[in-house]
Structures are given as C-alpha cells and as structure tokens.
Computed example of a mutant assay.
Amino acid sequence: MLMKTGLATTARLAPAALAVGLALVASGAPAATQGQPVPECGGAVICARERWNDTGVDVTAGEPVHFRISGTWYDAGEEATFEGYAKPLFAPVAWLRRYPGARWFALIACVERTRHCAPVRADRPFVPVTSGRVYMYANDLWPMYSNNRGQLTVERVIDPR
C-alpha cells in the first residue's frame, strides 16, 4: 500500500518510473491540468495508400469521440491535411469519391468498414451510429490509392468533463 507522503511514495516506485518522473521534472514539462483533454498514449498511423487503416479505437454507438490529428499526406503531388483539399478540375468525378460529400483527401472515419462513415473534423466529435472498431482512410477514388503517399497520426482524446 502506498503512503500519502511524497518521499515514501517515491521510494516505492519502480526505478524506471522514477527515472521518467525525474526526467519530466528536470525538463520543465508542465503537469497535466484538470479539465484539459488528454490524448491516449501513442496514436494510430493513417497511411494515405491504405484503403482501410485500423485505428485500434473501439467506440460505442452515440458516444462522441474526439480525435487529435497531425501530419501531412499527398494525393499525387497535391499536399493535404486531414481536412482535405478542393480541386475544381476534379469536379466532374467528385461524385465517385468514396465519401462524395467530403473534400478530396479528407480523413474519413468508419465503424467496422461499413458505410457508417463521417469526415473527421477538428471542431466537433465523431459520433458513431453503431458500435465497433474505427477504421480511417483518405477520401479518394477507389482505384487511385497507388499515387498517394504520406501519413497522419490520429490520437483519441479523452475529454475529462
């Protein structure tokens, strides 16, 4: 059983945990503050060339899920973030995108590789209509994934409210 005093607790920590804690203190890293969203450890790599990327995130129908996304990917030579890009030249074939209502190369989240999909947005959570594993992809034409490159990192953010 851990005691409430700092020294007694520190003495009982595993050496590796103690080293990590001391390194954080020495680096001046800020302590977690109450009420701020906290990302889960790690994150999933979403590859632009993959038609389905398993995020490792399981969701429950109706429960909002927040994601933090970083990185850049490319549709042939066109650079994009997770929000995708608009290209008027491609307008005649836009309806053929896997998710026609979202921009080219927008990050799309689906539950269990079904049609229960939605674009991932920075300003609002993904709210699944069914429970299961979240898969993601770059919104492109199904046969055109071979000219894609780059990757995004996606972290599920736990909202403590």
Rank of each mutant, 00 (worst) to 15 (best):
A29S: 13
G71V: 02
E155L: 12
P64R: 02
E63I: 15
W142N: 14
P39D: 00
P15R: 10
H116S: 09
P92G: 03
V129H: 07
A122V: 10
L18G: 13
N147V: 08
W104Y: 11
G62Q: 04
A48S: 05
P160L: 12
E112T: 13
A102D: 11
G35L: 10
L152W: 02
V157E: 01
T60S: 12
S27N: 04
P100N: 06
I69K: 07
R49Y: 05
G150H: 04
A19M: 11
G21D: 08
T72H: 09
A76G: 05
V111Y: 00
V59H: 01
E155D: 05
Y137L: 15
F126D: 07
T55Q: 00
A32R: 04
E40V: 14
G62H: 09
C117E: 03
V20N: 08
V134S: 02
A19W: 01
V134H: 02
L152H: 03
G132P: 06
P39W: 00
R113G: 02
R133L: 06
N53V: 01
P92T: 09
A26P: 13
G101D: 15
A91Q: 13
E63G: 08
L22H: 06
G71S: 11
L96E: 03
V93A: 15
V129C: 09
A16Y: 02
W52M: 10
T114G: 15
Y74V: 01
Y135I: 08
Y137A: 15
A61P: 09
W73I: 00
S146F: 12
Y137W: 14
T55H: 00
A118R: 08
T5L: 12
A138E: 02
S27H: 04
E79G: 01
M1F: 13
P100G: 11
I46S: 03
A118E: 10
L2P: 11
L89F: 11
S146A: 15
L107P: 13
V120Y: 06
D75K: 02
D140V: 08
A19I: 13
A61D: 04
L141H: 13
C110R: 06
F126L: 11
R113K: 14
T114V: 07
G77Q: 11
V38M: 03
W142L: 15
G84M: 01
T81I: 00
W95M: 09
N147R: 11
P37Q: 08
A32M: 02
T153V: 15
A122M: 09
L22R: 05
T114F: 14
G84D: 00
T130R: 14
R97D: 06
K87L: 03
R124T: 05
G132L: 02
R68F: 07
Y74H: 01
T114I: 09
F67G: 11
